[in-house]
Design a protein around this nucleic acid. Structure first.
Lengths: 133, 133
DNA sequence: CTCCATTGGTCTCTATGTGAGACCTGGCCT
DNA sequence: AGGCCAGGTCTCACATAGAGACCAATGGAG
């Protein structure tokens, strides 16, 4: 079965379960990727482990508040682990867990899609905006 | 090269380009998937074409406001097409474009990952919440 | 001829989420 | 004693999202 058929079939199963978010793995998981920063942080941590400040430098337009919050959520979901070192001042390193690493293949597929289709999307936007004006 | 290395390498390229969102395909595209409803709508339309009200029934907890807005964004990006039929009252059908269909394979990979890892994530959450309390 | 229901939205108001940036902690160096 | 560092938390202001009333055009019921 292709992924396409798979997604359609999955949708029908959702319908049967009436899309209760707590029952639906996809809602549960895509809602997390469905925030502005999660995937960006995962990709940054895929490249290498990062300390808090380094992560903030890597993704300059996230606020400390959201960085903390997103990291906590990722930690809670078991995708990221947090390691405190007793230096002074204490330093904290964030790493992908094996579970986090297991997400990189599918996420990579999406990223590859994004790269290959980007120009097509930008063209579509330009056409749409042209037509609107 | 594995997707993992691919994602890491991509990250380094982002760093070089300083992550300017308009220059970065991944920001550009993941920001769109990074809203609460886009992927859900794409998956619904993957199963079959939908009219506005049917889509609203399929995803009951989206507001009309956000449904309209998300559909417009998807249309603008060329992932979804809008077809108006001159019935009375006029009916509108939404369909995935070929570009939209091309996203289903990578999206399906992510969905499959979500399904297979869901119980692991739920366990991790329970452990984290336990520890916090 | 009037009244109502229908579809695909838009509008307004409120609630929630996000960002900016000040502040905190506490040990070390000068 | 004063200032610095990392890794946060806190508060306030603003942007975004949700709920639900409202709308326009038409066809059918009475």
């Amino acid at each position: 079965m292709t992924s396409t058929e798979g997604v359609g079939a999955l949708f029908d199963r959702w319908q049967q379960r009436r899309l209760e978010p707590s029952q639906c793995p996809v809602r549960d998981v895509l809602d997390r990727l469905g925030d502005k920063w999660t995937s960006l942080i995962v990709v940054a941590l895929a490249a290498r482990d990062h300390r808090f400040a380094a992560l903030h430098r890597a993704i300059p337009d996230i606020s400390k508040r959201m960085l903390t919050q997103t990291l906590r959520d990722l930690e809670r979901d078991g995708l990221v682990s947090r390691h405190v070192f007793p230096t002074t001042p204490p330093s904290v390193e964030y790493r992908l867990t094996p579970l986090g690493h297991s997400m990189l293949d599918p996420l990579g597929a999406l990223v590859a899609w994004a790269e290959s289709r980007h120009s097509e999307i930008r063209t579509a936007r330009a056409v749409f905006d042209q037509r609107a004006a």
